[in-house]
Amino acid sequence: MIEKVIERVKELLEGGEIKGFVGLCNKNGHTAPYLFTEVAELDHLVVGDFQNPGDARYPLNKLLIDLYRAYPEEKFGVLVRGCDERGLNDLYVWNQLTPKNVVAVGIPCPQELADACGCPKPYPDNSVAEPIAEGAEAQDLIRMEALGVKERFTQWMEVFSKCIKCYGCRDICPMCFCKECSLELDELIPRGEMPPEIPIFHLVRAVHMAGRCIDCGLCNEACPVDIPLRTLYKKVGDIVYRKFNYRPGFDKGKSPLNVLENK
């Protein structure tokens, strides 16, 4: 897989189509996001599947937003999985990136990862290889929905109360592109309260994810106290899909929650 990615990026860099490529770089035993601008550097390019598939993932799109803000005229390539590509689509909708400034180089995810994520589409459309896995059901969501309302309350409050308000979920989220965050607004979320007022803190973020979350699960991985955030946001996506027939990253145009119909 990595050979194909390197081959494609080399082609893009040599052809001068892109100014640089946002991918993962493995140097001195560390993996980190990196902007590749020279073909010679591509030896260090990795996709991040080391011991397990998807064990080193980063919100590369988020770096792309910063690059776009700094160099609005330049075009950059970016490494994407299925979820990242949905993220790109949604970032176009939210006017944070434009397709003419981005070349996606996609890789499909293996079934093991797709199942672990409960990913609806574990492969991008722009890909260096054919899909190798099918969409998977969100088992965690199904399990949670099967519980009674009282039990759900107990479980959520238990996990929410572990929150240390580190903002890791927000900081890693590729769809959190705001400069100022509601969750840091003193009037809404008073400073110095620990844990932050529950479940308000988490519900505020959940509401902000409605019509935006592209279900990449990075928040879940980033959370140091293991709050099953992905399950919460999967539900958010599920409600928006069932009530308004809209799926961020799949559907064109704004979320119905951001459009006021003249009926």
């Binding site: 939210w94 006017n95 944070q96 592109f177 705001c178 704004k254 951001n258």
Partner: peptide
């Protein structure tokens, strides 16, 4: 200073 031009408000 803080608007990122996402246009979420525009059609609302």
């Amino acid at each position: 200073e803080t608007c990122v031009g996402c246009m979420g408000c525009l059609q609302m």
